[in-house]
């Protein structure tokens, strides 16, 4: 997708959260069905973070598998967004994990 836009959003969120303190590390969770390619995101973060005054920031990424919750009560993992519930064969289900890219945590330097 548009990893450059997402990198800019992440950088702005991190900068705001750091409240003026130097950022040393960011941990990101990338959902399997978020549409985000981790490699592209890392490449753009490498460009965007220094532009915003955040240099030498280590980035850790975790992959989050997609999990669905069906109206029949079943929860299941799937690697496609158009998954069919293995318990009831239906499509009345919601994606409960793996749809988003999340900033899990950051590490900042305290004076």
């Amino acid at each position: 997708m548009h990893e450059y836009s997402v990198a800019c959003e992440i950088a702005a969120l991190v900068k705001q959260s750091a409240q003026g303190r130097p950022v040393k590390q960011i941990t990101l969770a990338v959902g399997a069905l978020s549409g985000i390619f981790t490699e592209s995101l890392l490449m753009y973060l490498g460009l965007v973070l220094p532009d915003m005054g955040m240099n030498n920031v280590a980035i850790e990424t975790k992959d989050v598998p997609a999990t669905f919750a069906c109206s029949c009560g079943a929860t299941y993992a799937a690697d496609t967004i158009a998954s069919v519930c293995p318990a009831c064969g239906g499509y009345n289900r919601a994606l409960t994990a793996g749809s988003d890219c999340t900033v899990e945590s950051i590490e900042v330097e305290d004076d």
């Binding site: 705001q16 890219c101 900033v103 950051i106 900042v108």
Partner: peptide, 13 residues
């Protein structure tokens, strides 16, 4: 070093 747990979407702002 202080670790801040955010657990926020990239689209949070």
């Amino acid at each position: 070093i202080e670790k801040l747990r955010l657990a926020k979407s990239a689209h949070a702002l």
